[in-house]
Design a binder for these strands. Structure first.
Lengths: 208, 208
DNA sequence: TATATTAACTTAACACCGTTAAATTAACAG
DNA sequence: CTGTTAATTTAACGGTGTTAAGTTAATATA
């Protein structure tokens, strides 16, 4: 029974309702294991009604990720208050890893699940706004360290440095998620691995 | 029409036939996009016949991965011939990355796809045999560097060092596969990122 | 040699999936 | 009061992984 004429606001609210339900299920069971029918049931709609708000399951996934990217950036931005640029960079790494390990299924969705490339203009987020864009935040922090003359002198490409730091932290977190239950490898503790990765990178990047 | 009584060898051959067909499809289209029916069709059997050789799709996936791990170890073992231990470690990293980027879908299957943890005793591979176990190979190479006294003096945990190096290389490769098509980030070239990661890790790990 | 057994396979079926098309219903516009 | 249309649902399509129930041909036994 369709009561009709929804304001734009009401439509937006329903969209958010769908996204939240989808995220909760995606995060607890993994994307593949969640059906459109299940998401719909949770909010008391039929499965097909989701399709009038999102083109397909992948579009819904992208919308979920978008709000999670926002959450990540929002979590990390408090770090900007730290004074020393190197310390700021260290704690940004720790904050990132903390997010990844606290919300592993979120993280998997965001950084380990292949999706069709998401056009910038289709996203609800603002690129290059450090409030919404965690990569921009990292770049800002890296640029500050560079500005302060703390990097080795041959390191001048801010994007390249940022991407390398990101890769280092991502590598530790991603291996943890996929491989840590594997008995094949005698895993050290995740905190030891994170610490060593950060120490190694600092020594490798920072001027003596 | 079932001609029957297969020798153990014939059964093994069919198993390999299935694994090869599965891998080819998995690698070209991604695991989720390949159906059991499709795999079976390719080798001229019915879908259900696969189930008398593998418990389910996941078991088949694990079998595929097993043979790929073997291929990786086999690719990398030629590196043991290099004399200088540090150089050996560097080239091991390059070999690993080369494998990852040359066979991205293989790599995704092996190191980025969540599976139920695979019991060592169920695997067809020999753990701790450097011929078959790429992690063991890495550990051996790391141990040699340590033996030669080339690591910083406070670095003594071989597993921890190996896992950190692995994480660094994995991070660069994994981000490349998932995110490199994303226009959100101004990506540096993959080779620049790999090179910097290796330089940073060397400076961070090796005694001055 | 005839019969039973069984291994190797296939077909049919189940309960799901993402998605689309068609039908339904309630609110509004004229 | 009637038509239109937006919001939603039901029905349906062609697929999925998997299980249960045949089917068939070669062997083992009598």
């Amino acid at each position: 029974m369709p009561p009709k004429v929804k304001t734009e606001q009401e439509k937006q609210q329903l969209k958010i309702l769908i996204i939240d339900a989808a995220r909760e299920l995606f995060v607890s069971k993994g994307v593949e294991a969640v059906s459109m029918r299940e998401i719909a049931k949770r909010i008391g709609y039929s499965a097909t009604s989701i399709y009038s708000h999102f083109a397909d399951k992948d579009a819904l996934l992208r919308a979920v990720c978008d709000t999670d990217f926002l959450a990540l950036a929002s979590t990390l931005k408090s770090i900007l208050q730290i004074n020393d640029p190197v310390q700021r960079m260290i704690e940004l790494g720790q904050g990132y890893a903390h997010f990844a390990l606290q919300y592993p299924n979120h993280y998997r969705l965001m950084f380990m699940t292949p999706h069709k490339p998401c056009k910038v203009e289709e996203s609800s987020l603002e690129q290059n706004n450090a409030e919404q864009d965690a990569y921009m935040l990292l770049k800002t922090v890296v640029a500050d360290v560079h500005q302060a003359g703390r990097f080795r002198k041959e390191l001048t490409d801010i994007d390249l440095i940022a991407q390398t730091i990101w890769a280092g932290m991502h590598g530790v977190c991603a291996l943890q998620m996929i491989m840590s239950q594997d008995e094949w490898v005698n895993w050290s503790s995740i905190s030891a691995r994170l610490t060593l990765m950060q120490e190694v990178m600092l020594r490798g990047l920072i001027r003596e």
